[in-house]
Computed example of a mutant assay.
Amino acid sequence: MQQKPARPWADAARAAPLLVCGAIAGPLFVGVFLITGATRAGYDPLRHPVSSLALGDLGWTQVVTFVVTGALTVAFAFGLRRALRPLGGSIWGPVLVGIWGAGLIGAGVFVTDPISGYPPGTPDRLTQYGSAHAALHDGVSVLAFVALVAACFVFARRFAGWGSPLWAAYSAVTGIVFTGAFVLSSMGFEQTEGLVNLAGLFQRVSITAAWCWLSLLALHLLRRQEIGDRAGG
């Protein structure tokens, strides 16, 4: 008797819990910084970076958020690798998403320096790093941001090859928006005139755009997997 071939989506089915990790990481991260940023004394969400929420007595909430959402994103990267196999697979896309996740963990472990006058009583800009962990925070954060932008364009190319022009366009636009808003926020945190009081807003635009893309990507692949399971069943 001839053995029935395995369904193309059989291996990808095991990725479902990991894809769920990717779907919830973004809303969790954004929800925490919106709530804490709106309630923290002396903190201005339009002016101050998300990383500054890790400073002060209640800073542990943002530290935990960095670490937990970073771990969820690393798990999601493994799920991506499995879920994309029926489409032809991708190596660099999941790897870059994993670097983004690892960078978030690093950003939580290595706390940033004060900037733009937060916490209250600190200068707008330190002339040098106040500690080694602040320098490491910036280093891992930049690496994570670059990896995320690269992931957007890698997936834009892959989706175009998979015959998904809308997802290809959405991935590319996310990369462009993320990059532009990140550059403007960085200039504001460097105290560039006219951008200082909006630097936090620009950073939130970049971060929210990135998390929306990642969460929707996870949900998209979960949906494809569900359809594949039905077709195979």
Results as ranks from 00 to 15, higher is better:
G121F: 02
L136W: 02
L166D: 14
F182V: 06
G175Y: 02
V154P: 06
S141I: 14
Y129W: 14
A132E: 13
G130S: 08
T174M: 01
A135Q: 13
R157Y: 10
T179N: 11
G130R: 12
C152G: 01
L184N: 11
G175H: 04
A172R: 01
R158A: 07
Q128N: 12
A151M: 03
L184E: 15
Y118H: 07
G163C: 15
G175W: 00
A147T: 06
V146M: 10
D124Q: 03
V142S: 00
V173P: 00
R158Y: 04
V146H: 09
S164T: 08
V173Q: 03
V140I: 14
A181R: 11
G117R: 05
W167I: 05
Q128A: 15
Y170S: 03
L136V: 04
V142D: 03
A156R: 02
P123Q: 08
R125V: 13
L126D: 05
A181M: 10
H133A: 03
A150P: 13
G139T: 08
T122F: 09
V149C: 04
Y170K: 03
A160Y: 06
A134F: 09
A160W: 01
C152H: 04
S164M: 04
F145R: 15
T174S: 00
V177W: 06
A147R: 03
G117H: 04
Y129C: 10
R158T: 08
T122V: 11
A134S: 15
R125D: 10
A156G: 06
T179I: 05
A132M: 15
R157T: 11
H133F: 01
S141P: 11
P119G: 15
S185W: 05
L148Q: 08
G121I: 00
F153S: 00
R125I: 12
G130M: 09
F155A: 01
S131K: 12
G130P: 10
Q128M: 13
A132S: 14
S164V: 05
G161E: 10
A169C: 13
A135H: 04
A169E: 14
W167K: 11
F178I: 02
A168M: 06
G175L: 01
S131Q: 05
L166W: 12
W167E: 11
V140A: 12
D124R: 01
L143Y: 09
D138Q: 00
D124E: 06
G163V: 14
V177M: 06
A144M: 10
A168G: 12
R125H: 13
Y118A: 07
V140G: 13
A144I: 10
A181W: 12
A172L: 02
